[in-house]
Amino acid sequence: MRLKDKVAIVTGAASGMGKAIAELYAKEGARVVVSDFNFEGAQAVAETIKEKGGAAIANRTNVAESADLEQLFSETKEAFGKLDILVNNAGIMDGMEPVGEITDEKWDRVFAVNTTGVMRAMRIATNIFLEQGHGVIVNNISAGGLRGARAGAAYTASKHAVTGLTKNTAYMYAQSGIRCNGIAPGGVETNISASMTNISEFGAGRQMTGNGTMPRVGKPAEIAQLAVFLGSDESSFVNGQVIAADAGWIAY
């Protein structure tokens, strides 16, 4: 098993890529904290893992709330005694608004979940890892964190920020036994579009020109395979990288 005896937190794990990552982590031997704002969904994933012989607990966290994040890490330590891997997967979309249309409210909401929540989770995890002398962070970022034609201004900026945060963290703690890498999925079959409101006709139209070069839509399980590699000791020499998993989409 590639993650035997590891303890991992996966945020946004009630569905989509987070669910696939949590389930594959458990299959590979990790004890998993299935965290999501949708607690019933998180419970269902945790129960499925346990029915298959794995170890998991469910946790309700709104990653935009500091108190929820503190509780997440507290529950993890209480249940499993340590933390080896943090997977920041939770995220929301904007409404494809270009900068000329984005509202302060939408901008702040997207950044609270996609960027500030990720930073706060990384901050807590990093201090745990420094005490232990080891730890791994995997940020599920998006092709929108590498290119400008994948979403609106808020989502694109929020994901580019996490790309920078990932690289900076990797560099800062490279000699402290901490690794930090990112995944940049292309179009993947998830329900993230359910978080979209007040979609901009102009922005969506422009974004569709980028979609036209997408080779195919991916499966959550394909992203989970990369998340396992980055979380495991197999990637011990990989640090500060944001790896695209997009069937060659950004190669165009």
Score class of each variant (00 low, 15 high):
M1T: 15
R2D: 09
L3P: 06
V7Q: 05
A13Y: 01
A13N: 01
S15Y: 04
M17V: 08
A20N: 10
A20P: 10
L24E: 14
R31D: 15
R31V: 02
G41H: 01
G41W: 00
V45D: 04
T48R: 15
K50L: 11
K52C: 14
K52E: 15
G54E: 10
A55N: 15
A56R: 08
I57F: 10
A58M: 04
N59M: 03
T61Y: 07
T61V: 15
V63P: 05
Q71S: 12
F73D: 10
E78I: 03
E78M: 02
A79D: 03
I85S: 14
W107N: 12
F111M: 09
V113L: 05
T116A: 13
T116W: 01
G117W: 04
V118C: 13
M122V: 11
I124F: 10
A125S: 14
F129M: 10
H134T: 08
H134P: 03
I141M: 09
A143D: 05
A143L: 00
G144H: 11
G148W: 03
G148V: 09
R150K: 13
G152E: 07
A161W: 01
V162A: 02
T163K: 00
L165Y: 07
L165A: 14
T166Y: 00
K167E: 06
M172C: 01
Y173L: 04
A174L: 02
A174K: 12
G177L: 01
N181M: 03
P185C: 03
G186Y: 00
T190P: 02
S193P: 06
A194P: 04
S200K: 03
G203V: 06
A204Q: 08
M208R: 07
G212R: 13
T213M: 15
A221H: 04
A221I: 08
S232P: 04
E234K: 06
A245P: 07
A245D: 03
D246M: 05
A247C: 04
A251M: 15
